[in-house]
Design a protein around this nucleic acid. Structure first.
Length: 292
DNA sequence: CGTTGAACCTGTTTGC
DNA sequence: TGCAAACAGGTTCAAC
């Protein structure tokens, strides 16, 4: 579920709820999605939450410096496909698949829920955090037109795969990749390096507008994504391509198609988003003959 | 370099 | 109705 807008929604909710609070105690359930469960159990109690930030699809819960420790460090959380992190009153009934409880000094607790456990949780020193985040590409909302074109243009992979590659851009997932390609009228199988500067500029603008709108609407709720207050996002109502196979394109009325690109379902309009130039066999043969 | 498929794990939807 | 297959917002890894 969680791509950049959903993670941003979770981060904002969490920030408002727990900034400045201290973690009193930790309880863990299943721990197979944690780098080092012991480090979380031992490292969190007594620490104050001094910031909650988003980096791509990662949540960074920054912790105050600890006596006897040089660097402050942070709790790094990735929500995977079904993860969720929010603060709850201690008496609130528990959701199924809750695997971590962090009790706060005001009586409430932060809970991590994740049915599939594709998420990740890890205690990190400043250095580890910097190294981990250094592997990620540019923030889609901050990247300049020039840098975007350079990053996209240096890849010979299909644009859908390029958008999903977190080393190129951080935070884009399957929904917003398809939505931005539809908006920019670019076929998901086009090769990154074959996009013109104009097309790249259109894609960057489309992605930016879509992400900002999605954040404003608190993300897309496909299954059961809810924000920190338990309210579902609204952006799924705006989807123009994702999940709309067989329905009419909002621009031209052509049926939206679903294909698999980079191992992921990809929805697009075959009329608005023209495919990579792949001449029919007879034509290709004739062209090749001409060149020789 | 790039692509594909499988793996991780659980739940929901779809099809026969 | 029942059961199996397909599919799901993500990432990583082996094999080609």
């Amino acid at each position: 579920m969680p791509e950049l807008p959903e993670v941003e929604t979770v981060v904002r909710g969490l920030r408002g709820a727990v900034l400045g609070r201290s973690i009193v105690s930790v309880r863990l359930g299943k721990t197979d999605f944690m780098d080092d469960a012991g480090a979380i159990e031992e490292g969190l109690p007594g620490r104050r939450i001094v910031a909650v930030e988003r980096c791509g699809k990662f949540i960074v819960v920054r912790l105050g410096a600890e006596r006897g420790r040089a660097s402050a460090g942070a709790l790094l959380v990735h929500l995977g496909m079904t993860g969720h992190l929010a603060a709850w009153a201690a008496e609130q009934p528990e959701k199924k698949h809750t695997h971590a409880w962090f009790a706060l000094d005001d009586g409430r607790e932060i809970r991590y829920t994740d049915a599939r456990r594709f998420g990740r949780m890890a205690m990190m020193t400043e250095e580890e955090l910097a190294r981990e985040m250094g592997r990620l590409g540019a923030e889609p909302l901050e990247v300049s037109e020039e840098e975007f074109f350079l990053r996209i243009g240096s890849r010979r992979a299909r644009i859908k795969a390029v958008l999903l590659d977190q080393r190129v851009l951080r935070g884009v997932g399957n929904i917003y990749a398809d939505e931005s390609l539809w908006r920019a009228r670019i076929h998901p199988e086009r090769i990154g390096s074959r996009l013109s500067a104009k097309e790249a500029a259109a894609l960057r603008r489309a992605l930016r507008e879509i992400l900002l709108r999605a954040i404003a609407l608190r993300g897309s709720s496909i299954a059961d994504f809810v924000d920190a207050e338990g309210a579902p996002g609204e952006y799924q109502r705006r989807h123009k391509a994702y999940g709309r196979e067989g329905q009419a394109c909002a621009r031209c009325g052509t049926m939206i198609r679903r294909i698999v690109v980079a191992g992921r379902s990809s929805f697009f309009c075959p009329r608005c988003q023209r495919g990579p130039r792949r001449p029919r066999k007879g034509v290709a043969k004739r062209l090749r003959k001409k060149k020789r």
